[in-house]
Design a protein around this nucleic acid. Structure first.
Lengths: 218, 218
DNA sequence: GATGAAGTAGGTGAAATCCCGTATTTGGTT
DNA sequence: AACCAAATACGGGATTTCACCTACTTCATC
């Protein structure tokens, strides 16, 4: 094989990294040039490792997969991103695609499918996995039907993120106010905005959203 | 090697299962006779696969690793259990050991450590991993100092579990009352008991507890 | 048959949150 | 310069939840 593609794996669990590494060991088209535990490490080593493809766990503490994908796409547009996700929710798929991922697989996928995805990606194609594809299709149909329904992925402002994070840590209005040095009423305003934007109905759904989207760790 | 140990891997992510499989492929002391996605499948196939060791992910929907361990220990005491956990909290370690796990590793462990653990376990020894060992030591010291502090792992009653589950779904007192056909005040009583038992300070911590312990899925 | 745990239910007052608003300042865009 | 979105802040009343109790019933266990 003339053109071996260089791959970096980013996942906070070493066992997953080793696992993927082991899967690709027998395959001559791909060579794993690094496996890292966080986005921070990735950006530190990106220039020296010069990967073609980055395999990215979406659910990581600190910087989540979507954020990393966005930054990669802005600063290193030649690097392709394949996202791995524990639970393939529509939200995450949409965010990942928006951020520039060219592949998306559930962690339930087989090693065969992983290699298939990598092949497609190295040919410059997209690959989204069968189970993902059906979710994308459904989402697409929804968009066509409702004209404009992709409100779900509306972005939170910086401040709203702070508030969301604080709520998810179990703080009360007053505690959040103190922490962020604003009035409790302002915290309330932010919260209402968050709930409206994300179409959630209460604090608990908000916390679950935050966990799902890697905004806080458990 | 005369005595090859038979291993089953249980994890809800195929990629992790395949990864561990791949890691053990080169090792003649251990052969993976099955990899399964849930406790249910495990108990269906246990009699035909007759494993020596079960590698168990602690964080799974439906039946979590601790429950599976307990059931295994009661019904198949010859089968050794090695727990893998994403986040190695004291609570989980304590629960796992109580339930009868003879090994406990964080998912951040290396493949080398995994094999080391399996070697110890097949010799009939316990193995808890370096990072785990320090947590165990600290917990042990606490128990010695406080005479009796392991209140943390106190069990919830059936009804309390129902209430916890309902709260975690984002229902209010009134909604839970309707759902369980009891008075809102009773729901309140249950909730207070839950918070006290688990030493949590509010609903949000409760929800996070429920997610962490696999009582609800995200 | 006493004891205790689990499940049920309620009282009361305080605290927190929700839900409807309005208003000012700041920073960026056109 | 005009405009808009974001962030900040507040009001008032309704509703919900919290905290700390008491109390009854059932059921198993000793």
């Amino acid at each position: 094989m003339i053109n071996t593609k260089k791959i970096i794996i980013v996942d906070d669990h070493k066992i997953v990294r080793d696992g993927i590494r082991a899967m690709l060991l027998c395959n001559k088209s791909f060579s794993v040039v690094g496996d890292l535990a966080s986005g921070k490490e990735l950006f530190q080593q990106l220039n020296s490792l010069t990967p073609d493809i980055v395999i990215l766990d979406i659910g990581m503490p600190e910087m989540n997969g979507v954020e990393i994908t966005g930054k990669l796409n802005r600063e290193y547009p030649a690097v392709k991103v394949l996202i791995l996700s524990a639970n393939a929710s529509e939200d995450w798929i949409v965010s990942a695609i928006k951020a520039g991922a060219v592949g998306f697989l559930p962690k339930e996928c087989s090693s065969g499918e992983l290699i298939k995805a990598l092949r497609h990606i190295s040919r410059g194609e997209n690959y989204y996995g069968e189970s993902i594809a059906s979710i994308i299709y459904r989402s697409y149909v929804n968009i066509l039907r409702d004209k404009e329904s992709p409100k779900r992925t509306e972005e939170l402002t910086e401040r709203e993120s702070d508030v969301l994070k604080a709520f998810s840590e179990g703080l009360s209005f007053k505690e959040i106010a103190d922490k962020l040095c604003i009035s409790p009423r302002t915290v309330e305003s932010h919260k209402i905005n968050i709930l409206n934007k994300l179409e959630l109905k209460n604090t608990i759904e908000m916390v679950k959203y935050a966990i799902k989207n890697g905004i806080i760790d458990l």
